[in-house]
Design a protein around this nucleic acid. Sequence first.
DNA 1: GTCAAGCATATTGTATACAAAAAATTGCCC
DNA 2: GGGCAATTTTTTGTATACAATATGCTTGAC
Lengths: 218, 218
Amino acid sequence: MEQRRADSIAEALEEQIFDGTFADGDRLDEIRLAEHFGVSRTPIREAFLRLTQSGLVEQIPRRGVFVRQPGPVELMEMFEVMAELEAASARLAARRISDAALEELKQTNVRCDAAVHAQDADAYYRENERFHHMLYRQSGNGFLEQECLRLHRRLKPFRRVQLRLRGRMAQSMAEHEAIVAALAKGDSAGAADAVRQHVAVQGERFQDLMASLKPAAE
Amino acid sequence: MEQRRADSIAEALEEQIFDGTFADGDRLDEIRLAEHFGVSRTPIREAFLRLTQSGLVEQIPRRGVFVRQPGPVELMEMFEVMAELEAASARLAARRISDAALEELKQTNVRCDAAVHAQDADAYYRENERFHHMLYRQSGNGFLEQECLRLHRRLKPFRRVQLRLRGRMAQSMAEHEAIVAALAKGDSAGAADAVRQHVAVQGERFQDLMASLKPAAE
DNA sequence: GTCAAGCATATTGTATACAAAAAATTGCCC
DNA sequence: GGGCAATTTTTTGTATACAATATGCTTGAC
């Protein structure tokens, strides 16, 4: 069944770094982790390399690996890049999206709306994610889609907090509809701007994000 | 002396994949490479993991690693993303760039111009790269800068061909000046569009790129 | 008492040995 | 003679042993 132990270990460690089990600056002990997972040091080391390339840990030669949680500045930067990447997706999608896909986006928004009225944050979260993934896909650029997914995944633990805030779901919904409207018109620049606004972290949302950083785990 | 053998081996392999020593679909033999580099299999395997994460090779469980050169479609997609990322850099830089940095950009362009008149392709290439790196930096977003550098580096072997084409240097120069002008005016949208035009591969440049794909090594 | 040097210890990086799985070859049967 | 299956062989994935280096502590000298 197991594809490769090193891979599943990497995913497990990734998850533990995301959820705050390991704090910023913590050193990951090869031997302890090897015992913990019941394997030798080799798969642990291979997992470390994967995490290093993902930017989740830093590997200092002859010193070990240390988890590297993004600080406030880096986080803002990552959200800014996410906004630009998604805006690019929208820009391209405005010219390339099919009628069928556009209809599907609208359907997703309907389900989003239902979740808002039902005050179902989880359902909203699910449909919202679906909306964005479809947007990436409709850029018609597989590489861009992958890059968007990569960063989206990396920012996941930080984005979750934002939706819980009162009123944010309704506002997010309205932004979704603006995006779909721009796409329907084939308005590249408008779609890009709408998405950028939607994704960007600014104003009071910045404060919210910063406040959510302090507790390591939720 | 040696920081870590695995790292230098990864760089060496990377270089060999870039320059066409290994063609698309080639399998990288751990044992042969270990002998070739005079090390054991372990550093080779660690190097493989790095290359996997960079997307240069594909690792199929229990089968081995195979080099994965981007095909025409993927290459176009990557250039499109590069254009969008650099456009984002310019968009942000237009608001954030300092007078000193703007002046330095102009200076770089002067050196570019000199290289054009001297028909010195290498000097032009060097100054052109410098121009783009400065642009990334002036976005004021370190994460974006890193992402740009990453993709820039990945596309390096394919971009090199383009500059050799007759007349391309002069056109590129003109585009640089348009970019600087937009930045000087603080025109975000204009700077972004200018950069996108500059980086994008379209029209006859697409044909040139495709033509350059056929010979594995130059 | 403090600082420095040397030693001990712990930890990383590499090599090799072993196990498991897939591919290839050979032999057998149809 | 061809196809299928079993065995052999090659190769990947993991474990362990070894080497090299950095760190921290102890001890001694000033």
